[in-house]
Amino acid sequence: MSMHKISLRVNSREHELAVEARRTLADMLRHDLGYTGTHLGCEHGICGACTVLMDGQPVRACLVFGVQADGTEVRTVEGLADGEQLSDLQQAFSDHHALQCGFCTPGFLLLAEAYLAETSADALTEAQARELVASNLCRCTGYQGIIEAIVATARARRK
């Protein structure tokens, strides 16, 4: 397999590496760069556990090749907190018991982060949050806490 030299920024850090053309962004992040917070639940784009932001847009890292991230800015769950301080969204997830096993959590956090960044000026209804959350799968919580956490964060950010 031929290797391709790429460069990208992950959570504001520069990385240069050589990857096989077929290597997924998820495997590259996890096993080549050590960002193991990106989780693989299905590897066929349904569960969304591997959701990361590529140039601000949520993508399924299992459906993107590493080479496609060349020249992009990628944000993973490791990039959400400010040092030891959890982000408001992360804190809301804990407050609303929006996670149990935590395996799907990074994907939901990044999905919601992208949505809130785009729409924070508008009121987020529970129905809209539910539709957003229906993008990804969680097997533990029944989704209620996740929806509440996102709605609460949207409200707090509007203030």
Binding site: Y35, G37, E78, F93, D95, L99, G102, F103, T105
Partner: peptide, 18 residues
């Protein structure tokens, strides 16, 4: 609040493939 949450929310959990 759950003792498990901070590490899981930060992507610092240690699952099998980690």
């Amino acid at each position: 609040p759950r003792a498990e949450d901070p590490r899981l929310l930060r992507g610092r959990g240690r699952f099998g493939d980690d």
